[in-house]
């Protein structure tokens, strides 16, 4: 329908401008020479240099990466098991409780999750710090991982699994050689999603953290509360760049796979 071409293109233009203008402005102003974040005075990489010299920022970045890598690994394994149980085991007793516990954290306000986890750690006397953040992040990420992997298992062809079983493969062998390879793209997506959710989380980390375990979002948040600064723009741009590169790699891999298929 060519009559709709112009309004359609205009909608796309306005929509994507709204989505991307703030991000582009943030990156552009990270190269601003001025400390005043909104007046452009010239190009400079000064703030990136300042960032690299900032040991607190570097330390927090490292903690965040470690928390994300570990919690995403736990979340992916638990999420995959949960997805398998939901998709392949049919009905079992208290299934509805399990389903509720998987789906509720997807939408539940983070403040409630954070508060409840902190009360748990206080009640059992666990020293708060690195490991409590890992546990907290693994808990909500595993629900996202379960949903992503479950969608893939639901769409997978069951006949291959049945054939393997008929040919004498046990449940473990069938899972390792048929189900898991088939679900691999979803497992990788689930890990990436869990990693990003952990890297990005401020609220749950703030509740579950203790002395000496300040994650990058916590560090950025306390800096942001003091106002806009080119240094925050610089660290934000680096994080955006890292995600952008990862998404690009994912998109290219996806395109190759689709072309090959």
């Amino acid at each position: 329908m060519s009559a709709w071409r112009v309004p359609r293109l205009a909608t796309l233009l306005v929509g994507f401008a709204f989505l991307y203008a703030p991000i582009v402005l943030l990156v552009v102003y990270s190269f601003n020479a001025s400390r005043l974040a909104t007046v452009w005075t010239g190009f400079s990489t000064h703030w990136y240099a300042a960032l690299l010299a900032d040991e607190q920022m570097r330390g927090s970045a490292l903690i965040s990466l470690e928390v994300a890598a570990l919690s995403a690994a736990i979340a992916t394994v638990l999420g995959a098991l949960a997805a398998l149980a939901l998709e392949r085991f049919g009905g079992f007793r208290t299934r509805s409780v399990f389903v509720a516990a998987i789906y509720a954290p997807l939408v539940m306000p983070e403040v409630i999750l954070g508060l409840s986890l902190l009360l748990l750690f206080v009640a059992i006397g666990a020293p708060r710090g690195f490991w409590t953040i890992v546990a907290g992040h693994a808990t909500f990420s595993m629900c996202f991982a379960a949903v992503v992997i479950r969608a893939r298992l639901a769409g997978a062809d069951r006949s291959l699994e049945e054939a393997a079983m008929d040919l004498g493969a046990g449940p473990v062998a069938t899972f390792m050689r048929i189900t898991l390879p088939l679900a691999m793209p979803a497992v990788i997506s689930a890990y990436m999603l869990a990693f990003i959710l952990s890297m990005d989380d401020l609220v749950i980390a703030s509740f579950t953290s203790g002395p000496g375990a300040t994650t990058l979002p916590m560090r950025i948040y306390s800096a942001v509360r003091l106002g806009v600064s080119p240094e925050i723009n610089a660290i934000s741009s680096l994080l955006l760049g890292a995600v952008g590169v990862a998404l690009l790699i994912g998109a290219v891999a996806q395109a190759r796979r689709t072309n090959a298929a």
Binding site: L81, V97, A101, I102, G136, T139
Partner: peptide, 19 residues
């Protein structure tokens, strides 16, 4: 298979809400 994610959620999600 089921008990690993189930126990995790019971401990880190359901029990904390009860708390």
């Amino acid at each position: 298979v089921l008990s690993a994610p189930y126990l995790w959620l019971a401990f880190f999600f359901i029990a904390p809400l009860a708390l």
